[in-house]
Write a protein that binds this DNA or RNA. Sequence first.
DNA 1: CAGTGGTCTAGACCACGTA
DNA 2: ACGTGGTCTAGACCACTGC
Lengths: 237, 237
Amino acid sequence: MQQMFNTPLYLQIREQIFDALRSGRWATNDPLPSETKLASEFDVSQGTIRKAIDDLVAQNILYRHQGRGTFIRRHDEQQSLFRFFNLARADGTKPVPESMNLHCKTRKGLKHECAALQRPTGERLIEILRLRRLDGQPVILETILVSQQLFPDLNKRDLPNTLYELYGDEYNVYITRAEEQIKSILPDATMQHHLEIGKTTPLIEIQRIAYDLHNQPVEIRISQCVTGDFVYACSLN
Amino acid sequence: MQQMFNTPLYLQIREQIFDALRSGRWATNDPLPSETKLASEFDVSQGTIRKAIDDLVAQNILYRHQGRGTFIRRHDEQQSLFRFFNLARADGTKPVPESMNLHCKTRKGLKHECAALQRPTGERLIEILRLRRLDGQPVILETILVSQQLFPDLNKRDLPNTLYELYGDEYNVYITRAEEQIKSILPDATMQHHLEIGKTTPLIEIQRIAYDLHNQPVEIRISQCVTGDFVYACSLN
DNA sequence: CAGTGGTCTAGACCACGTA
DNA sequence: ACGTGGTCTAGACCACTGC
């Protein structure tokens, strides 16, 4: 096959592989077909397949393991606990977060919430409130909002510490990236109570929107965090 | 040339190119020698040079421009204003920051400051205090600390809005990455005065350590920011 | 041992920028 | 028209994994 149209071949292949991934064509735990097999299937050279996969690896959608194969990146317990978790001790090490669910209910979504999730206005959302402890201290109060349509019966399940793993395993929704916005706030009565702080202890509030493979917003997560022993850590390049 | 020893050729080449960059072998504004020239110089194929440069581009040390050549990434006015600037409006757009210098002096570094900069304890540091305005409002109070040894007479200069450009142009110190830690604080009297806020307005405090090409810490920067109309924005992958 | 990804080559042609 | 980076190929060999 030759490069036709104006978009490079490897980008076309990348999109085709990406579509195949989303359609569930390959089992989540098995390796993808080898580069040479994909090359003959798509009728391009192995180097072109390689470049396409390079991109998907860079996007953290696939990963390679020499000698074993190429695999779909999953949110499993270990990574999921840390990959999207930016709170660290002052020395840069990361604590293991525990979580306790405070409530889980359904309610009508507010206008701006539905808009952020790109769902019809007024759709029912599932709201989860939980408290997270780091090194035993209550540090984070977290409100999670998802569409009930996309996650039927999520509210009737046992909710694990790592929700993104559950989203993937049970609902075929794979979180690949997220955007966070941080501001500073003072605690209301609920926060004071659960986080065991006074009304003059300032908090950071992190608003996250998490996106799936299709780049669709899937979850809103608002975390109020006490930043005494812990800080929000971020790298710039 | 063949792959010898156990490290891949392209990594060896990458390090050699990197060394050449640091030694100032190529002018900062001219393109590097073309891939084919580098290939014959290092006696490897063009594809291997390409892979080496790919890495340096991914690290944001070089950039390519098709048809023109490969260049050293500089902190120039435009990018520098935004590249390491994570405050955004709630809708995600970025304001143009202005800055006003409040003072610039030298003083003996505290123990933890010298340690963070990997300089001898008690060395003299240059301290710059400035106020930044976004959309006309005073939003950020910023304290900058660098070694006087590394930046002689910096305190006697006119300080531009984009310091990293000055570091590169005048001191051959190129900032390539930074680490930030964020926590929430209440303002002291100085902050209240300059940021025009009351004592109950919570702020976020960003502590940044910026690193140069050698991966040496070069600058400490502590910013206190009002997060009313602006938020700290960050992407997770 | 066979099969996977990882490296490396040599050479072709394309797309862009400059003069 | 020419030189640059960008894409693509076909084929070689290496390094790791699992049987």
